[in-house]
Simulated assay, not measured.
Amino acid sequence: MSDAATEGLRLQAGVCRTMGSELTAQVLEAAAADALAGGPSAALLRPWAQADLKTVMFDAMPLRLAAAIHDLALSGEEPELSAAYVALDPVRIWTVARARIGEHAARLARFMEHEPQTNEVRRSICLLGGFLTVARETGLPLRCFEVAASAGLNLSWDSYRHELAGRAWGDPAARVRMDTDWSGRLPPLEAPVRVVERAACDRRPTELSDPDQRRRLLAYYWPDQVGRLARIRAAIDQAVETGVAVERADAVDWLRARVRPRAGTASVVYHSVFWTYLSAGTQGAFMAAVGALGGEASAEAPVAHLSIEPRPTDLSIMEVRLRLWPGGEERLLAECQPHGAWVRWLA
């Protein structure tokens, strides 16, 4: 097994520990030690046997491995593993998982073939300030278009209750509630917001009516972060009841075909943790498509591009950026933790 694959597991373990999941950190460290010793987990890392560390982390291989094991536990097919996760016991989890990897090798490898789709719903509280800024500066109702939306949980951002710095925005009776450690000034909470259209696409959308796909989404949530799991379960239930839909489409093709400025509304194209999964060529094509929309914008039909993406020099910090046309100047609105645990408003 390559040093890069096992080093990636240890590196991700450190990130998980920093972000509050000691359980996932210990599972990944145990997997790294097992793979180095030629244990059963080495077979699951084989697709990355010759990869360098950059590729291992770009592919999010460690997160795929941790989620594959969690998914097996959530399936109920291995009651002893399920019980270990309920007990939040990382030593027991790895002991049982290691003993079962050989039996479930094909299933686990199949799970790991596809990149993660966390669909972290608390990123909505990070996006909130951007939507409010567009609403205040344009004075128009919003049309919201999310690319790489996974299950589309952040498409319903305006139906959630957001609590920040002793203030709140959204329906007090909302099923999905989220808070964050907010610092800096507040965004324009008083801005009137009305969403008149919303749509989303993903190359491989998560179909929440399918139990296997719903479980896959939950598997990427770290099991010892109980609040995150409760929040996404509430968001999933709401999305199923309200019929949130995500179209299966390539982001660039969908944007070109689906979105045009419309008089009397502000059209907002947005995404979160999408950019790093694109090739340089696709990144260029996407920005060209966004720029073309901006070129069609007017004061009566403005266009915005809102994003949450990792800081290039530090992947543990996300940047909330906004461009609003006419004009199109890029603004850094905020920095935030990848799961929305804290937001530092800079605008």
Score class of each variant (00 low, 15 high):
F274P: 01
C336Q: 04
R17H: 11
D34G: 05
T242S: 11
E115V: 13
A30H: 09
A106Y: 01
R136S: 15
A263M: 03
V86D: 15
A191P: 12
F58W: 14
A32E: 07
A334M: 00
D3W: 14
D52S: 03
D3S: 15
G184T: 02
R323F: 06
K54G: 11
E115L: 14
R216N: 06
A249S: 11
P205N: 03
T24Y: 03
D237N: 05
E78W: 00
H114N: 13
M287F: 14
R214A: 13
S124G: 09
V269Y: 11
I93A: 10
W325H: 14
R248P: 08
W325C: 09
E137H: 10
T118C: 05
T180P: 00
A42Q: 12
V193R: 10
P326E: 03
F111W: 13
G20F: 07
L53F: 08
L128C: 07
C336D: 02
R231F: 02
V269W: 10
P261S: 08
L9F: 09
A66C: 10
G284S: 12
R143W: 09
E329W: 04
R262P: 00
T118W: 03
Y221D: 01
V244M: 05
A73F: 05
V320N: 00
G184M: 06
L333M: 10
D237R: 13
A288I: 03
T138A: 07
S279F: 09
I93K: 05
M112R: 06
V226I: 14
A191H: 13
H114A: 15
